[in-house]
């Protein structure tokens, strides 16, 4: 495999990790917050207690992984590339909302999901780095 091909494969694999950790992290947070008695309040003590809920904790862990992998991706590619491509997370979140939490997803939302998927596909055909590229290898 050429250097450029390996780089692109590496980029796609990391993008999948970014998208999955974001969607699953949001879902875990949603599950945890909805299970808190009386919901969540912005008072420091209430927030600290929320963090010790196992699902909220799992969500925070997954979102920490999301942050580190996304920072790595931002060191490899433009923000204007990373943003649309990682928007696949919204599609994943809609699917989790529908099939894991049983939320009703209307036809118009499936149309939105299709548009996002088309946008992601379009942007993923562009060159990922156009600005100054310190340390770029290909």
């Amino acid at each position: 495999m050429s250097g450029g091909g390996a780089r692109r494969l590496r980029m796609r694999a990391l993008t999948v990790v970014v998208v999955a950790s974001n969607a699953l992290g949001n879902a875990a947070l949603d599950w945890g917050v909805k299970g808190l008695p009386g919901g969540i309040r912005l008072a420091p003590w209430a927030l600290a207690r929320a963090v010790f809920n196992p699902w909220v904790g799992l969500g925070i862990g997954l979102l920490a992984l999301w942050m580190l992998t996304r920072m790595t991706l931002l060191s490899w590619a433009d923000l204007s590339f990373v943003l649309p491509v990682t928007s696949a997370g919204y599609v994943a979140t809609a699917l989790v909302g529908r099939y894991v939490f049983g939320e009703r997803v209307a036809g118009v939302r499936w149309a939105g999901t299709a548009l996002i998927a088309a946008g992601v596909a379009l942007v993923s055909t562009t060159r990922e780095r156009t600005g100054s590229a310190v340390g770029e290898t290909d």
């Binding site: 649309p84 999901t113 946008g119 942007v123």
Partner: peptide
């Protein structure tokens, strides 16, 4: 100072429209 080409603008707009529908 990123070079945002037409396909990237189009993709970003599709994503934004999709998000609005969601």
């Amino acid at each position: 100072k990123e070079r945002v080409e037409a396909r990237r603008w189009a993709g970003a707009c599709l994503v934004a429209c999709g998000v609005a529908l969601l």
